[in-house]
Nucleic acid binder design. Structure first.
Length: 308
DNA sequence: TATATTGTTACACC
DNA sequence: TGGTGTAACAATAT
């Protein structure tokens, strides 16, 4: 479940590994997952598969300048006026492999959540796009659920991409001051605080895992309406947004579900979860049983004693 | 085989 | 109209 810290982990690693590499060829096994142009994402699966050859041609011979992130969207900046937008959604993965690593591993990785899971040979049945570089290295785009997408846009189109226009402030940027947070969160005064935090127009990049964790550390229950939350509590939430996200990035993300780093390894943040995925278990702070409920169709977990 | 899963959009409603 | 809540959607593992 890649949220901001997981996407940032992938961005950091890809930036290091892909910078200045030139695309030699691209293989697309799932035409529905790729598109060309700035149209809205929900249209991506209605796009004719004839776009696939265009997609491949546009990428061939282009060099990766940098990889960036906005909310949960990865933005690859290519030489020439070309950008590639990638959303990992629930189960998207990027695995990078250079020539040496291929020789070492034979392309085998342990990609699944359970340690007992068999190793997977790449490309696997969940590998949907394969980028080959001129130096013999390879980038695999895997996605078990196929909810993710890859979209190419020219630099003059990027301003038209709706999701980029509508994202709220980046929580780790300096511009995200306490005042900016107050202004943003009050847009959702009548919502449960958890849903407000997960609203990407309010704050970019927070999903189910980190909204649970942030609210635990702030001591606020997920179902509380924003309008009922005192300024002091909002300050706690604000500080913990920054704190929890930063710790999670240091731990290289949470490997809950199918998230893996670009070498196929797991992020370590899951060890530090206090409430997410811990319903019916004991609170790590006070021993009370963690409860869960549904909010907006999503599972919210919290400690009834630590959170007011 | 029904269900759970998530980020995001579409849409109905007040 | 805008804010809010819910359904729907993508596809798969269990």
């Amino acid at each position: 479940m890649p949220e901001l810290p997981e996407v940032q982990t992938v961005v950091n690693e890809l930036n290091r590994k892909l910078k200045n590499r030139t695309i030699k060829s691209v293989v697309v096994n799932a035409p529905k997952m790729v598109a060309v142009g700035p149209g809205v994402v929900s249209n991506i699966r209605r796009v004719k598969s004839s776009q696939v050859s265009k997609f491949i041609k546009l990428l061939q011979g282009h060099k990766i300048i940098s990889v960036k992130r906005r909310a949960k969207l990865l933005i690859f900046d290519f030489s020439g006026p070309l950008s590639m937008l990638v959303h990992l959604k629930m189960t998207g993965q990027f695995i990078f492999e250079d020539k040496k690593l291929r020789e070492l591993t034979g392309g085998e990785y342990r990609l699944l959540n359970r340690p007992t899971a068999p190793k997977v040979l790449l490309p696997s049945k969940h590998t949907h796009v394969i980028f080959s570089f001129t130096d013999g290295s390879t980038l695999y785009f895997n996605d078990i659920r196929k909810f993710g997408y890859i979209k190419l846009v020219s630099d003059n189109e990027i301003g038209q991409v709706r999701e980029l226009k509508e994202y709220g402030p980046e929580p780790l940027e300096k511009k995200f001051t306490l005042e900016a947070f107050f202004a943003a969160i009050k847009k959702r005064a009548r919502s449960p605080i958890k849903l407000a935090l997960m609203d990407t127009k309010v704050v970019a990049g927070i999903g189910n895992i980190y909204s649970d964790e942030i609210l635990f550390h702030a001591g606020v229950r997920p179902m509380r309406l924003v309008s009922s939350i005192k300024n002091q509590e909002l300050r706690e939430i604000y500080h913990n947004i920054k704190k929890v996200l930063k710790i999670a990035i240091k731990a290289k993300g949470s490997s809950v579900g199918d998230f893996v780093r670009t070498d196929g390894s797991w992020g370590q943040m899951g060890k530090f979860h206090f409430v997410y995925g811990r319903a019916k278990q004991k609170c790590k702070k006070c021993g009370t049983i963690i409860e869960s409920l549904k909010l907006g169709g999503r599972t919210a977990s919290f400690c009834p004693k630590c959170q007011k």
